[in-house]
Structure formats: structure tokens, C-alpha cells
Design a binder for these strands. Structure first.
Ligand SMILES: NC(=O)c1ccc[n+]([C@@H]2O[C@H](COP(=O)([O-])OP(=O)(O)OC[C@H]3O[C@@H](n4cnc5c(N)ncnc54)[C@H](O)[C@@H]3O)[C@@H](O)[C@H]2O)c1
Ligand SMILES: NC(=O)c1ccc[n+]([C@@H]2O[C@H](COP(=O)([O-])OP(=O)(O)OC[C@H]3O[C@@H](n4cnc5c(N)ncnc54)[C@H](O)[C@@H]3O)[C@@H](O)[C@H]2O)c1
Lengths: 224, 224
DNA sequence: AAGAGTTTGTGAACGTGGGAACAAACCGAG
DNA sequence: CTCGGTTTGTTCCCACGTTCACAAACTCTT
């Protein structure tokens, strides 16, 4: 049943299931029901079963799922059975944290280079890697077969950095700069926007504390 | 007009529109069409218009939107006309980066305290704030009226930290630890999971480069 | 004042995703 | 082998979100 395309919403949850399965394995639980796994992943059990059914029939009716087997199948589906070389561009505050983050390498993502345009930063050792000049990007991509690039530069530089990445052959970009990136259709961009997340929380928070205050139109007084 | 609830998908895009409007204002553009704004925000213009229509009728047919006026209306809707005090718990690699990030304070989010359980870190000055013991959480929340908490601790500590936050009165949580948090229904949690983002990219990347079906069970009919 | 040209706001069609419910499949006991 | 208990995989239906297409509303020119 797996030749069909997997729904995007399902793809986004597969990493969560993978984490839940790893957590079960650490507790030496070998088998689980959809109910147990769903609760560990924080989703509805019907949703979980439907998600998994898109990958194939890896469970046993009346029994449940073999944790290790299911984990392997999900990892294979996502593509985590292979190694993904990654470059990070912009080694400032955030770039340093990312370079030091072990959660990437433990899941098959290997940081092969840290790049920065600032000559003052170059040569600095971060997480065992030397910061290298941004101009070396395309040589590094060629050498290691890098497909995924991470952008942690200021917003003003992000589009230019992205263009160079695409030129160099990178086809997937994870963008932390708060700006919309324009890329050719074959390139995927995912954006992580921390300010947006806070703003969404603020919206709901405001609704919680203000039950009713109908002032739809007010003076265009602007607070900078 | 505006008393109706705003769809969640729309709420998630409002911050993007806000950024686009700010960017237009910086270039001293006072008026824009839905087409221009949509392109700056990277969305379809019909979607943009429908989103904005949920807030009210702030445009002028035949003309477009007044950039400053629309910005104010969106900011008001999100709740950015008021100040949101924030606490960050877990001042390690990521916590340091977050504390130093100017993008939060520039949008009405004010970091009032940095907390860490590690005694060795306490007293350290980060971005003008001293790292304080985690035990002071509830006093700080009371004193500043904090409604939003950020978790940047290891996954193993996240649920416990979250529980303390909820007890202290925090009702919105931004979680960076890769673990599912359980909270009472009146509390909102948003999760930022960088590993998941990379895994989603990897899934699509794998599909791009592997046109042949790796699954032995069924036919090799695969999209280009 | 009227018409031509724009652009918004929205109704309607379409697609995707979520959840309840259930038949199919499996296990173990007797 | 059959029956009862259990759990998956799937079907059906509804809600939500996206996109198209167009009438309504506005500006500007003549
Ligand atoms: N720090 C955070 O917690 C945080 C949170 C959310 C978003 N962000 C975003 O992440 C990005 C980085 O944030 P930061 O705090 O690390 O900023 P930073 O200023 O500390 O680091 C930016 C780095 O990018 C480098 N750089 C600049 N232009 C470059 C170019 N053209 N090519 C290569 N490198 C270049 C700079 O030399 C610097 O080292 C920003 O866009 C910021 O908005 C940061
Ligand atoms: N570093 C990154 O770029 C990155 C990226 C993605 C996700 N994350 C996640 O963010 C979290 C933090 O990452 P990090 O690299 O900063 O880790 P870190 O180990 O550098 O920092 C964690 C901090 O939390 C503190 N802490 C531990 N238990 C605590 C408790 N009970 N109460 C209060 N403080 C406590 C520690 O003292 C430490 O200072 C982790 O869950 C990690 O998986 C980090």
C-alpha cells in the first residue's frame, strides 16, 4: 500500500513517532499498541493508525506493533538509514548553538562544515570544526555531496546566502533568518521563525484574558 | 467583521504579514496592493485577502492597503500593542542564543528573567541579565505578571520545568526540548523541533533523488 | 457625470486532514 | 476447531483551509 504519496501532515508527524519509539526502546518495551504509542506521541490513536497505514501494514491485529521493526520502517521511509551531510552558514549566537547540538548528529545528520563571511570568526574551533570562509561553500558541497544547508545569518544576508547554496547544488534549506526566501521549485525551504511562534502564543494569550472588548475600529494611533 | 474567531492557519500567517509590512515601511512604501504584499510574504494573494478579511475591512478597493494602518491593525489583533514579559529556563547553548536575540524584544517580548537549575551558571551575566536559580520562578512570574515561558532545558527536564511553570501561573509555553509536553487544556504549548525539520527535509530530499521504488512489496509506479 | 481601469472582499468549488466507527485479522483457551 | 477477546487497517463523514472567479467599490480621466 506504499506506492502512493504520503500526506504532508503525516510526514511532519513521523519524526515525533520516531522519538516516541526510541523512548519506548530505552525503557526496553518491545511491543506497543496504537493507543500506547499515540499517547506517547501526544496524538489521537486513530490518527496514528492512519498515518502508519500510509507506510504499509507493519502492525499485527490483536497484538500491536513491534517497536524496533516499526522504528526501522519509519526511519527508512524518512531516509534516516542514510547519512545526510549538512553545512551551517552564519556562525553567530544561533550558529554556535546549532553546531554544538548533538540532536542532529544522533539522527544521521552530520555537520561537515561551518561557514561565515566574517574574516574575524574564521579559524575559530566550534564543536571540533574550524569555521571556514563562505567562499568555500561550493567546493565543500561538491566534495561531501551536501544536499541540506542551514542558514543562521542575519535576515539581510539570507537570500544571498540561499542563492549561493542553490547555485552550489543544495536542494533543501532550513532557514532561521526571519525572511521569506525565494527559490526555484525543485528546492525545499523550511523556515523556523521563533518570533512568529511567540506572536502566535501572544494572540491566544490575549484571547484568554480578554473575554469581550468590542472596539473594532479605533484611531490609527501608532505605537512604534 | 471581527468578533468571529480567526482561523488558526490565518493566525499563523499574521506574523509573516507583519514582517512584510515592516519591510515595506523601511523602504518608505506607504501603500500596497494585496498582490504586492502577498508576494513579499510568499503567499497567494487570494489567501492574503481572505486572511485579512477575517480581521475586518482595512483595505480600499481600487487602491489597496495603507501599510502603516494595516500594520497597526494586525499588531493589535495579535496583541503586540502590549508588552509581554517572558522567562527563559535553561541557559545552555540555545538559551544563551535566545537571551541574546534582539528579534524578541523588538516585537514587544521582554525577557524579564533567565533561570537555570545549575548552580555553577547562576550569577553569570547574559544579555544584561543575571542567571537566577530556577526556584525563583514563581516569585518572578508573580512579580512581573509573566504569561509566556520558554523551555530550553534538556528533554529529560522539560516536563518537570513545564509543570512548575503551569503551577506558577504561566499559560503559554514555547518548548525547544524534543519531547511532548502534557499540560492542562487552558495552557498552550508550541513546540520548535529542529531535528524534525531536518527530517522532513530529508524525506523530501530522498524522494527527489530516488525515483525507483525501494519497496519490494509493490509496483514501481512513482511520481517524477 | 459617466466610463474605463483597479483592486478588494467574498461566495462557491475543491482538496486535505481529523475522528468515529467497524469489519478484518490475529491470539489463546478450551 | 471454534469462540471470545483484542487491536489493526480502512471506510465514511465532517470540518477546515485553499484557490478561483467575480461582483462591489473605489480612483482617475475625459
Ligand atoms: N539568536 C537567536 O536565538 C535567534 C533566534 C531566532 C532567530 N534568529 C535568527 O538567526 C539569525 C542569526 O542570529 P544570531 O543571533 O546568531 O546572529 P549573529 O549576528 O550572532 O550571527 C550572524 C552570523 O552570520 C554571519 N554572516 C553575516 N553575513 C553573512 C554572509 N553573507 N555569509 C555568511 N555569514 C554571514 C556573521 O558574521 C555572524 O557570525 C538571524 O537572522 C536571527 O534573526 C536568531
Ligand atoms: N543547541 C541547539 O542548537 C538545540 C537545537 C535544537 C534543540 N535543542 C534543544 O534545546 C534544549 C537545550 O539545548 P542546549 O544545547 O542549550 O543544552 P545545554 O545542555 O547546553 O543547556 C541546558 C541547560 O538547561 C539547564 N537545566 C537542566 N535541567 C534543568 C532544570 N530542571 N531546570 C532548569 N534548568 C535546567 C542546564 O543547567 C543547562 O544550562 C535541549 O532539549 C536540546 O535538545 C537545542
Amino acid at each position: 500500500m506504499s506506492p502512493t504519496r504520503i500526506p504532508e501532515a503525516t510526514v511532519a508527524r513521523l519524526p515525533v513517532y520516531l522519538r516516541a519509539l526510541n523512548s519506548l526502546l530505552e525503557r526496553e518495551i518491545r511491543t506497543c499498541s496504537s493507543e500506547e504509542l499515540a499517547s506517547a506521541a501526544g496524538v489521537n490513536s486513530a490518527k496514528l493508525r492512519k498515518d502508519l497505514s500510509h507506510l504499509g501494514s507493519y502492525g499485527t491485529r490483536g497484538v500491536g506493533y513491534d517497536v524496533e521493526y516499526l522504528r526501522y520502517q519509519i526511519a527508512r521511509e524518512i531516509g534516516l538509514t542514510q547519512d545526510w551531510p549538512v553545512v551551517i552558514v552564519g556562525i553567530g549566537n544561533l550558529g554556535h548553538a546549532l553546531a554544538n547540538y548533538s540532536g542532529f548528529s544522533s539522527r544521521g545528520f552530520r555537520t561537515v562544515a561551518l561557514l561565515d563571511a566574517d574574516a574575524a570568526r574564521q579559524g575559530e574551533l566550534v564543536a571540533g570544526l574550524k569555521i571556514r570562509p563562505f567562499t568555500e561553500l561550493s567546493a565543500i558541497v561538491r566534495e561531501h555531496g551536501v544536499a541540506i544547508g542551514v542558514i543562521a545569518t542575519p535576515a539581510a544576508a539570507a537570500q544571498s546566502v540561499c542563492d549561493h547554496m542553490v547555485d552550489a547544488g543544495i536542494r533543501s534549506v532550513l532557514n532561521f533568518a526571519p525572511t521569506v526566501l525565494t527559490v526555484p521549485p525543485e528546492v525545499d525551504v523550511r523556515m523556523v521563525d521563533l518570533s512568529s511562534e511567540l506572536q502566535i502564543l501572544a494572540y491566544h494569550e490575549q484571547r484568554k484574558s480578554a473575554p469581550a472588548s468590542p472596539d473594532p475600529t479605533l484611531d490609527p494611533e501608532v505605537v512604534a
